[in-house]
């Protein structure tokens, strides 16, 4: 495992250097090239290995002897609560926790409520080591299906409105909003980074995603925290309502997009 990560880091940092040459390359072409190179060298994409790891956790017993598979069936294909297609409808209101949850929060809630994990032990970094692979695996169970998030429950509508508000809110000492970088100036460069257009690309359909520039698997919560950090706003803690709200807004804008997880991004 360690060797794998070291190898990728070496590889990608070397390749990345090239992408910062005098001429500015087409970022989409660059991503394709990096993906092809990694596949050639490793024979498999790192994101797929992490989904595999998540699958192992899915079938592993928690502190009280149950596993995710105990409730959702082997490979998430149980009769009662199958997870095939679940991600394509998230975030969603869940009665058992009386909350609208995104992928990360839903998984954490199950671990605490049904597998007996101590909330204190999994709310931090140690929890991310399990939750990120699990999120990757669970999302991949919806591959090939169309994103279809609905706003039926009043709490879902409320989350969508909050998310929309956050998307456009000019905040902090840099006076930025998500919309300034990703709607108005999407496609422009900030330094050498081309700004993504998450609404146009129906972004939720390919997250969680493997980031080759960091050799890390990120869920959308990691991405949102990264963006707030860039604009010098204190990051919302993991599982904070702001993550759910922003994803609700982006998910509705991703409706119709076909799920393809793990994504592969810069």
């Amino acid at each position: 495992m360690v060797i794998r990560y070291a190898l990728i880091a070496l590889l990608t940092s070397g390749m990345l250097g090239v992408s910062f040459g005098e001429e500015i390359k087409d970022p989409a072409e660059e991503v394709k090239k990096q993906k092809k190179l990694l596949l050639e060298v490793m024979g498999v994409l790192p994101g797929d290995l992490i989904a595999e790891e998540g699958k192992e956790y899915f079938h592993k017993k928690g502190p009280n002897g149950k596993s995710c598979a105990s409730c959702h069936g082997k490979d998430g294909k149980g009769e009662k609560m199958p997870l095939v297609g679940a991600y394509a409808t998230m975030p969603k209101y869940y009665k058992d926790i009386d909350k609208v949850a995104d992928l990360d929060l839903r998984i954490k809630s199950c671990m605490e409520k049904y597998l007996g994990y101590d909330p204190k032990k999994i709310s931090g970094k140690a929890g991310r080591k399990i939750i990120v692979p699990l999120a990757t695996y669970v999302a991949s169970l919806s591959n090939g299906m169309k994103f279809n998030v609905k706003l039926d429950h009043p709490k879902e509508k409320e989350m969508f409105e909050k998310g929309k508000e956050l998307w456009y809110a000019r905040v902090g000492k840099m006076d930025f909003s998500c919309a300034m970088c990703h709607d108005k100036y999407g496609g422009y460069r900030i330094r050498l980074q081309t700004l993504a257009k998450p609404k146009e690309s129906k972004v939720m359909r390919y997250w969680p995603a493997y980031r080759y520039s960091k050799d890390k698997m990120w869920t959308m919560e990691d991405r949102i925290r990264g963006c707030y950090k860039q604009i010098k706003v204190t990051k919302p803690p993991f599982y904070h309502w702001a993550h759910v709200a922003l994803q609700m807004y982006m998910a509705v804008n991703s409706n119709g997009g076909v799920v393809e997880v793990p994504g592969f991004v810069r």
Binding site: E165, L166, R170, Y228, T234, A242
Partner: peptide, 19 residues
């Protein structure tokens, strides 16, 4: 985070899709 997303009057005025 809550403290940091408090807006001044001008930021509030600018927080619309057309900016």
């Amino acid at each position: 985070f809550e403290e940091d997303i408090k807006q001044d009057w001008a930021q509030k005025v600018c927080s619309n899709p057309e900016s």
